[in-house]
Simulated assay, not measured.
Amino acid sequence: MLKRKGKLKKNVAVIISVLMMFVMGTPAGTVYAASTLRSTYGKTLSNSGAAVNYSQLNNSSTLSAIKNQYNSITMENEMKPDAILGYAPTLLSVSDAKAKGYYIPSGYTESTVPTLNFNTMDAVLKICYNNGLKLRAHTLVWHAQTPDWFFRTNYSSSGSYVSQSVMYARMEMYIKTLMNHVYLGSYGSVVYAWDVVNEYLHAQTSGWSKIYGSNLGTQAEYVKRAFQYAYDCLSYFGLTNSVSLFYNDYNEYMIPDQIISLIKYINSGNKLCSGVGMQSHLSTSYPSVALYKTALQKFANAGLEMQITELDVGNTSDSSQASYVYDLLSAILSVKKAGGKITGITWWGLYDSVSWRSSNKPLLFSGLNSPKTSYYSALQAYTNAGY
């Protein structure tokens, strides 16, 4: 009970310290005028990020706000497989695909290749390059938002599912063509991390499971091969020491041992996977910060690089969110300070009304330039951590 009282007093103190700034006539924004997420977390963790969409990047006011708070972005949807492949295939001959620079592996036995549309991605890379922003590339292999025709014979929605060997060749073609395109281009230097495989341990029925089977546990060969293909690209361009490859998942605080086991399997023989992307879609009611920190510490003990990749915190009030955010970021920073390789925090959205969880008001801003109490508690956690 004493422990709970102590924690309650601390949380109340955080809220009071921020609110007193207003009561005493000193707005919190004035106190932290020189501090932003970029100048604090971006400095210490290297990457302070937010998920955005292309239209937001194309709006000068929004872009200015992004650059003020963040030095990294993740595209919410524009780099997912369905955005690159399209909802219906446009097929090229293999010879035409080669002429366009597509990577066609030796094991590729089909006569056609689907067109990959890089137009939006290329525009995003250019914006990042011209505005001093880095990019987390999200995502290459995912059971969702991947068109079903990609897994079927002749790339036809009416075809049967292809064999495992055919799908391996398709996956290699897709991953290496996309990554080659990025790093052969003028702006590829902005990409510092890739979510190679997303949510495999929570995968629902998809083309991947239709071909390779379900319930493969922590030793799924197609997952390991995806990392091998991505690593091959980084190795070719000499980027294995500067670009990280992640396994990304949600509810990661519930299954840390499984994630560690999966990454150990991926890295058996050669280190292909840098670490874990902790999505961190949280709520003030669950998980507890203690449970989250336990998972974080397990990943640190396993020697994994960690990035918090899709953070948001659902809540029932600004004050409860502010207390939770303070405790959460304090925990993250304490693991960092103890030697954990935590290299970024990305919030999943710019402000509440554009969040995928808008009814839960899960972000640090109520509007583009309207910080909430939780924003100031995030900065307070950073200051109190001794940075």
Score class of each variant (00 low, 15 high):
K293V: 08
I175Q: 03
F150K: 00
L368N: 04
S320E: 15
P114C: 06
F365S: 00
L37P: 02
Y324E: 01
N77L: 03
D195P: 09
S39G: 02
T316V: 11
G238W: 07
S242R: 14
N71T: 11
D195Q: 12
M79H: 13
M278A: 15
S242C: 13
Y183R: 02
V354Y: 05
Y32L: 05
G269Y: 11
V141I: 15
R170N: 06
S366C: 06
G159F: 01
N301P: 12
T109R: 06
T240Y: 06
A295G: 13
V190E: 13
S235Q: 14
A51P: 08
G269I: 09
Q307N: 08
W149P: 00
G367H: 03
V141N: 11
A88Q: 12
V223T: 04
S288P: 01
S111H: 06
L45A: 09
Y222F: 15
K9M: 07
L333T: 06
P362Q: 07
V31I: 12
S377P: 05
N215W: 05
D82A: 05
S60V: 14
M171D: 02
T139A: 13
G42W: 00
Y292M: 06
L282D: 02
K10L: 10
G86H: 04
P362C: 08
Y375V: 10
W142Q: 08
T30Y: 06
L364P: 00
A123T: 13
V223E: 07
D257A: 15
Y222N: 10
A338G: 09
A51L: 08
S268N: 15
A51F: 07
P89Y: 04
Y286D: 11
F237R: 07
Y129H: 14
D327Q: 09
A28M: 08
H281P: 01
L37G: 08
V335N: 10
A99H: 05
N198P: 07
W208L: 10
G159H: 00
Q69E: 15
L272P: 03
Y212K: 07
Y250K: 07
L125R: 03
D312Y: 13
N180Q: 08
K10R: 11
N68H: 13
R38W: 00
I342L: 13
T115K: 12
S48P: 06
L140G: 07
I260V: 15
M167A: 00
K176W: 06
T36Q: 02
S93P: 06
L333N: 10
N215Y: 11
G314F: 00
A33W: 09
L329P: 00
F22C: 01
K224M: 12
G277I: 11
L178M: 10
Y286M: 04
S261D: 15
P89M: 03
S261Y: 11
L85R: 03
L184T: 09
W356Q: 13
M121T: 13
T343C: 15
I84C: 07
Q307D: 12
I66L: 03
M75Y: 05
F246I: 06
K9W: 05
S274Q: 02
S39C: 03
K3S: 12
I308L: 05
L368M: 14
D352G: 08
